[in-house]
């Protein structure tokens, strides 16, 4: 599909920095979205979700008292969660490999590194709309399938830790040896599309 109208989609933007909230809201309004609510931390956002049926949540990571990771887990697994299946985009300045894996394992659908552009935000929204993934419930995880490729596998899942599965198809870099090194956008995408 070439063209969308995002007019009817409800967005919830969660960031403790009011300038980032303003930036994201400006982009969403430019996309035609009419219903964009915001919250300054995960706790406020969870309250907002009870009265605002968000179609897509865009959340920061670092926030007090409830950060983006704990907020995502609360949305996914909280007993009183209004919508455990709502798509979540993690928008953060953290681009280290271990952070990306932590975000994915908390149950986010997409990961978007700051600084953002209109194009980068749209690409994540588009991915959520065009490539919805099934949800997986295991003893230790509930969220969108962390594998994005369709694999016709009938057997028992025998995953170990996600770190063991990471094989970034890019040339060996410092980040491959040190999980604290920031990844480029291509590396982030490669990791998430594994």
């Amino acid at each position: 599909m070439a063209n969308y109208s995002l007019e009817r989609l409800n967005f919830l933007v969660v960031d403790d920095n009011k300038h980032m909230r303003a930036l994201v809201k400006t982009i969403l309004h430019a996309f035609g979205s009419k219903n964009v609510h915001d919250a300054s931390d995960g706790a406020d956002a969870f309250k907002e979700l009870r009265v605002f049926p968000a179609d897509i949540i865009i959340t920061d990571w670092n926030m007090d008292p409830l950060d983006g990771i704990d907020f995502t887990k609360l949305v996914r697994t909280g007993k009183d969660s209004p919508n455990p299946f709502v798509p979540i985009i993690m928008l953060t300045g953290h681009t280290e490999m271990h952070r990306i894996i932590e975000a994915r394992d908390s149950g986010v659908n997409e990961f978007l590194a700051k600084p953002i552009s209109a194009k980068s935000l749209y690409s994540r929204i588009k991915s959520i709309i065009e490539k919805p993934r099934p949800f997986i419930r295991t003893k230790t995880y509930f969220g969108p399938d962390r594998r994005r490729r369709n694999i016709d596998y009938k057997g028992i899942e025998r995953r170990k830790t996600m770190l063991e599965q990471v094989q970034i198809p890019v040339k060996p870099s410092a980040s491959a040896k040190n999980p604290n090194v920031s990844l480029s956008e291509d590396e982030v995408n490669a990791l998430l599309n594994k």
Partner: peptide, 8 residues
């Protein structure tokens, strides 16, 4: 949606 704004 029938809005005029599309993501072109």
């Amino acid at each position: 949606s029938r809005g005029d704004i599309v993501i072109s």
